[in-house]
Design a protein around this nucleic acid. Structure first.
Lengths: 166, 166
DNA sequence: CTATAATAGGACACGTTTGTCTGCTTTACA
DNA sequence: TGTAAAGCAGACAAACGTGTCCTATTATAG
């Protein structure tokens, strides 16, 4: 459905929304638990930073964070910046002109379904996604996230350690 | 939504369904009025012929035709042969495991919408699509199709002539 | 001031899709 | 039997998405 980049972004920003607001989060902190190629995700996040969805901070203690509260960013906000949303709004059969007036055979069908989908994406926030993940039954793959504390704790997280489900 | 190939195929087979059943139709007869690259469409139609959706006939008086009556071929039958339909059935967020049991945050939403879409594609036949095109108000772009008559008539159609709305 | 840690960004590789072109094969008809 | 008309098949190229890698830049800690 979505491009690989959008799928990564949705998962990554959902993960990002699980961290305390305002905290800078490393790319590896996001990419590692989700098993997403680190460098590739970095590019995706850089794009989202340029588009104003994220904020980035270079150098030590840097990282990425949401530019707005998690409940103010919708799934649609994320996808829109990475995928060509016009393809969702354009004709299913690829006709150049396909408005309500000059509709292709599948126009009204597609319009209806597309509208339901887009509306759902527009009303689903990162907060919703993050909370859903927190309450998933198979929470093994989603260890609880703590604030990046002083020194030792943060350094330990960097490696690919055990889930430490505590 | 669909690949370019699938979009071309849907439009081409809709056009094909407007011809008398059993008649061999040239690729150019389909590609020209729809403004689709001829050679590329030929490849797509060849694929559909190998998959049993179409029949092809080489040599003089050859061409393509539907392998079954137009009301026995659905839009889904066409798309299925060209696009990876599994991408419709896989997780929206790209998670490896995303079944009903271990659902991602958007799983149930997507499942519902996808099901409606697929069902619609499965119940929409080429006959439906063709008849819709026949009754479109802007029928200028869709001149009525006559049987490939003897000589002159067929030869005149080959060029990119005026719409001849008659 | 310097070393380190982190993002930023560009170059590159690879596969797939889209599209073009050319020659080959098959068939009907004169 | 020859020729023209048609699909068939493969090489090729351009564009794009995906992914890796390397270097530059920047901020912080010491």
């Amino acid at each position: 459905m979505f491009s690989q980049a959008s799928e990564y972004a949705l998962r990554a920003l959902t993960e990002l929304a699980r961290y305390p607001a305002g905290e800078w989060v490393l790319v590896t902190q996001i990419a590692d638990p989700l098993a997403i190629p680190v460098h590739y995700l970095a590019k995706v996040l850089q794009t989202l930073a340029r588009r104003g969805v994220l904020e980035s901070q270079r150098g030590r203690q840097g990282g990425f964070r949401l530019a707005k509260p998690a409940w103010d960013i919708t799934a649609y906000d994320v996808v829109r910046e990475l995928d060509d949303v016009r393809s969702l709004e354009s004709c299913v059969m690829g006709e150049g002109e396909c408005s309500d007036a000059t509709a292709c055979p599948l126009h009204s069908l597609w319009k209806n379904i597309r509208q339901r989908f887009v509306t759902a994406l527009e009303t689903t926030t990162l907060k919703d996604l993050a909370e859903f993940q927190e309450h998933r039954p198979d929470s093994v793959r989603l260890p609880a996230i703590k604030t990046r504390g002083a020194g030792a704790d943060a350094r330990r997280r960097r490696g690919f350690g055990p889930p430490e489900t505590g």
